[in-house]
């Protein structure tokens, strides 16, 4: 991924992702599941986008393809001028290693490693990482460095996952239902962490949720349903996470 071009879109914003007629079909043996049916989308530098939609609307599939975790059946995903849909396995690995941070619904922490070490797993292989301690401080866990995942609450675990995702100073932060496994109060703490990262570091952030209330904190809200974008709404006023309720 040597070629990194700033692509200016028509509206003058710096385009990070350009998605064109993206389709994804899962072959489940006897049935074929159309997860994406031709999605067109542009994501801009520094913005916080919420992908909203019910289960099965295709939002996770879209996020996975954006993150290089999955391949498309058809269509294109251009990241900074580079076509991800044509990238080799090795290029995708590099892309994930140096450009993308992930936050998953179920945290996906390595249970045998402490908070600091879980972040260390990523900083070891990154180009310009933060110190694991700094990343953990950003999410408010500077005092939990040597705790194992099993010793932490769900919200804390998710914040480690966020620390882990941002520690490499990624270009984009992709979060799949980051609050899905959490109660609302804990969820808000996690969202605050995400919002802070987006605001302070300017990381382009995509959050998947089926919770419409979270949409309030986004720059733009992309509604997905049955594998298609049904609507894109730009928020004129962004709410702070602590103003959200559900």
């Amino acid at each position: 991924m040597a070629e990194e071009k700033s692509v200016q879109s028509e509206n003058g914003k710096n385009t990070v992702f350009k998605v064109k007629s993206l389709t994804k079909v899962y072959d489940m043996g006897e049935v074929k599941v159309h997860a994406l049916r031709g999605v067109d989308l542009e994501l801009y530098s520094g913005e916080l986008v919420v992908l909203l939609g019910p289960s099965g609307s295709g939002k996770s599939t879209l996020l996975n393809i954006l993150g290089g975790l999955d391949t498309a059946t058809d269509g294109q995903v251009i990241y900074r001028g580079k076509d991800l849909t044509r990238a080799t396995e090795q290029e995708l690995t590099e892309y994930r290693r140096f450009h993308v941070g992930f936050v998953f619904q179920f945290y996906n922490l390595i249970p045998s490693l402490t908070a600091r070490e879980n972040v260390g797993v990523v900083t070891e292989i990154a180009k310009r990482p933060m110190k694991p301690e700094d990343a953990l401080s950003i999410v408010g866990l500077g005092d939990r460095l040597d705790h194992f995942p099993a010793q932490l609450s769900g919200g804390e675990q998710q914040r480690i996952a966020i620390a882990r995702a941002i520690a490499k100073n990624p270009e984009v932060l992709l979060c799949d239902e980051p609050t899905g496994a959490l109660d609302s109060a804990t969820g808000i703490v996690v969202l605050e962490a995400l919002e802070q990262v987006n605001r302070k570091l300017g990381t382009t952030t995509v959050i998947i949720t089926h919770n419409a209330d979270i949409a309030g904190m986004a720059d733009r809200v992309v509604h997905l349903s049955s594998g298609l974008i049904s609507e894109i709404i730009s928020n004129t006023v962004k709410k702070s996470p602590w103003e959200l309720h559900w």
Binding site: G67, L69, E89, Q90, T93, E94, Y95, R96, R97, F98, V100, F102, F104, F106, N108, L109, I110, V121, V122, I125, A126, R164, K168
Partner: peptide, 16 residues
């Protein structure tokens, strides 16, 4: 499985 997926998501190669 999930741990491997996560490692790969962070950019660890198959070889790693």
């Amino acid at each position: 499985r999930e741990q491997i997926a996560a490692l790969k998501a962070f950019g660890y190669s198959n070889l790693d």
